[in-house]
């Protein structure tokens, strides 16, 4: 495979990550929005972090920045912060802007269709304000973000030469997706039930169902298990099954295969890390995950994915020579 400019590879990697992040932020807000419509009573008054709208902030690590910029937790404030806030680097607005800036920087390395698609997404995004989102409906807006991401992926798949540029782009997508799926899955850990007795009850069921829906996994779940929703099976579906496109195993399949194409003798450590993480998913068992603790398992996974991203950076994107 022909080499490409490291700076371009870096921009492509991050362009893909930002688009994927925008999509998953929309998914996360979608699950929050659905959950917030369910009956809810805080276990203890004043336990603000347990509010449904606190969950996306915790999951993305944005809580501190949020409380610095907004006086209080509310659906509107969280939505503003995570969709339109130009001061929040992870907001959908900022992700799309960053992706478009990257696309501008690497116009030569992507197809015109890809650039035009991303540019028009950005131009549309710039036209949104909170009032407009309200008027069209929050879900409708989040749907739009997802569709733009789907569209970009489709344009990429359908027009781009399978060269290094393509592979770095796909690598970015799957690193980000692995990270984001783990975070969304972990949100259930933070959503408290009104009381311990509700575990397995109706509210619990709806919470798991909306989580599945936000990861496009509800229908697959039904197809595979034809049974009630159990946390154990949700974990299996979104972590270990390799036929679920947003599962951790599926992401690692992509990453490991792509790295096999890209790596040579200089990248042994990267190959080792990727192979190890892949093996943990390939040979892992649901029981072990449950026994280890789902939350703990996901935290450990996030740490490993982040290290893998750093190693990719060192190896290809920001080389030190």
């Amino acid at each position: 495979m022909t080499a490409m400019l490291s700076r371009h590879a870096n921009e492509l990697f991050w362009m893909a990550r930002h688009i994927e992040r925008a999509e998953n932020t929309a998914r996360l807000l979608d699950v929050t929005y659905r959950t917030s419509l369910l009956p809810y009573e805080p276990q203890e008054p004043g336990l603000a972090w347990a509010e449904p709208w606190a969950v996306p902030l915790i999951a993305t690590g944005g809580a501190t920045a949020f409380y610095q910029a907004y006086p209080q937790l509310s659906a509107e404030n969280v939505l503003r912060f995570m969709t339109l806030d130009a001061g929040n680097a992870s907001s959908i607005l900022c992700c799309l802007r960053a992706a478009r800036e990257s696309a501008r920087a690497v116009r030569g390395a992507i197809t015109s269709e890809m650039y035009e698609d991303l540019n028009s997404a950005w131009l549309e995004m710039r036209g949104y304000d909170y009032r407009r989102i309200q008027a069209m409906g929050v879900s409708e807006f989040l749907e739009w973000v997802k569709m733009r991401s789907h569209l970009f992926r489709g344009v990429t798949f359908g027009t781009m030469l399978r060269d290094e540029a393509y592979h770095f782009l796909r690598l970015g997508t799957h690193i980000e997706r692995a990270d984001n799926t783990a975070r969304i899955l972990d949100t259930k850990y933070h959503i408290l039930l009104p009381s311990a007795a509700d575990v397995g009850g109706a509210v619990d069921y709806y919470q798991w169902a909306s989580l599945l829906q936000s990861l496009s996994g509800f229908e697959s779940y039904r197809k595979i298990y034809s049974d009630v929703i159990s946390p154990r099976r949700v974990a299996e579906l979104l972590i270990l099954r390799d036929d679920m496109p947003r599962s951790l195993h599926s992401c690692l399949n992509f990453i490991d295969d792509t790295l096999e194409l890209l790596c040579d003798d200089r990248n042994r450590e990267l190959r080792r890390q990727s192979g190890e993480l892949h093996a943990r998913l390939h040979f892992g068992r649901t029981d072990e995950i449950i026994r280890y603790g789902l939350h703990e398992y996901l935290m450990d996974f996030l740490e490993r994915v982040s290290r893998l991203g750093d190693e990719i950076s060192r190896g290809f994107l920001v080389p030190a020579y």
Partner: peptide
């Protein structure tokens, strides 16, 4: 390739691009 200054380096009077 579309390069910027930092993408290039010179060694022994020879110009190179920094690639992957």
């Amino acid at each position: 390739d579309l390069v910027e200054g930092p993408d290039l380096m010179v060694q022994n009077d020879t110009v190179y691009m920094r690639t992957t």
